[in-house]
Write a protein that binds this DNA or RNA. Structure first.
Lengths: 230, 230
DNA sequence: CGACGGTTGGTTGTATGCAATGCGGTGCAC
DNA sequence: GTGCACCGCATTGCATACAACCAACCGTCG
């Protein structure tokens, strides 16, 4: 996906536009005009078109009936679906990691999260957006240690789409602490090779997170989503 | 993904090229030259470029170090990964379908497969490629009945990538019969609402299929894959 | 006053031209 | 004979010009 040597204009437009879309920076009803985007990114329509095609393939933009492209609107329903699929995949990953995971990587993960725990009890606390990245990184590393690149890629895609919600999980210091504890417990269990227990911990962890998000985001976001649902 | 009204050149190139890639029709080492493809499809480079970008996003073509695009080569490893993920998703789908599936659709599936069973015992037998489509359709309909469009899309993508193997599952009449029996059992159990049993049946069904494929494809394909693995 | 058709501006789809890059081949020097 | 440098070609990335199409607006006619 990343061009090997020199990132092209199309790549640049793709990632910047994608970032905007995933942050929800673009007005939802508004059509994305190729020429206008080309002007914004100081380039021509060709790279913009290529970026849009990729974003369309990713499902981050959708076609309106007239053939124009608009930002895809997340719905409550799709969020639930995404969490559902994510849960199944994460469970699979810890099972695989438990049975035949890369021990070196798993132990590195354990070390890193012990360090985070120490930092935290040492008074240095992590705030939302930064911790979201840590959290995503944990789950991706587990998948990578499990040795399933197909799943890694799928999880990354899922994470892109729920990131906008995930930040709501880490607005309280309690949740950050609980997450660190969960992660340590999971990776320890994986290293013990207990697939069933690890899967159960992961399931509980993700479900807890989903519950908190659901609660925090609450009715406000739900209503926002509802109205913008197509 | 499908343009609403008038399929564009880019759409045509995308689907035809994609079909060729998924059938393994293109020599693996051979670089895909934009201009040559444009000539083959009797169009210009622009639609070809867009098609290639989408295929790149799908992972069906990959960049060589020089920046050129080549058909992605399936590896034994990625096949195993795909089956692994597919298994997890299929299991999730029957669980969801068991608990809160669309009964109308589920009963329609049951009817259709009873009809297929009757046809078969009536002497009309189905052969490989045709039955692959039936089989894929079954699994997609289950996912659709489960009401998770995110998973439907992911499964479709997975199926695209394992189709090349799946045909090896249905070269014997026995396997076709066994598959019909499995499908009937699965959908009946789902309709009874027994999620655990349905998941177990689905797991057994997919694993059986994977085993047969692995056996039939055998070392020959495995070796072919190995040498072409990057 | 309403409905219909033409017209026009805006937007996307397609084609092509141009520049840059990387690779291979060839010729020259040693 | 071998190594190196230079040149040309193939190919991609980017820009722009042109064509097709849709949508809305406006005028006219019933």
């Amino acid at each position: 996906m990343t061009r090997s040597a020199r990132p092209s204009q199309a790549d640049r437009v793709y990632s910047e536009l994608r970032a905007k879309l995933l942050r929800g920076d673009l007005p939802i009803g508004q059509r994305l005009i190729e020429q206008q985007l080309a002007a914004d990114f100081a380039t021509s329509r060709t790279p913009v078109r290529e970026a849009l095609r990729r974003l369309e393939g990713d499902g981050h933009v959708v076609r309106d009936p007239a053939g124009g492209l608009c930002p895809a609107v997340p719905s409550v329903r799709s969020m639930r679906e995404l969490y559902d699929v994510r849960l199944a995949l994460e469970e699979l990953m810890v099972r695989r990691a438990s049975v035949s995971g890369d021990r070196g990587e798993l132990e590195a993960i354990l070390q890193d999260w012990r360090a985070l725990e120490a930092e935290r009890s040492g008074g240095r606390s992590h705030h939302g957006p930064e911790f979201v990245h840590q959290d995503e990184s944990f789950h991706e590393r587990i998948a990578r240690a499990a040795g399933n690149d197909v799943a890694v890629r799928m999880l990354r895609d899922l994470n892109d789409r729920i990131r906008i919600l995930r930040v709501h999980d880490f607005t309280s210091d309690d949740r950050v602490g609980a997450t660190i504890a969960d992660h340590l417990e999971i990776v320890r269990t994986v290293l013990e090779g207990d697939a069933d227990a690890a899967a159960a911990f992961m399931r509980a962890h993700v479900q807890r997170s989903a519950l908190v998000v659901r609660e925090r985001v609450g009715e406000a976001l739900a209503r926002m989503f509802e109205v913008s649902e197509s």
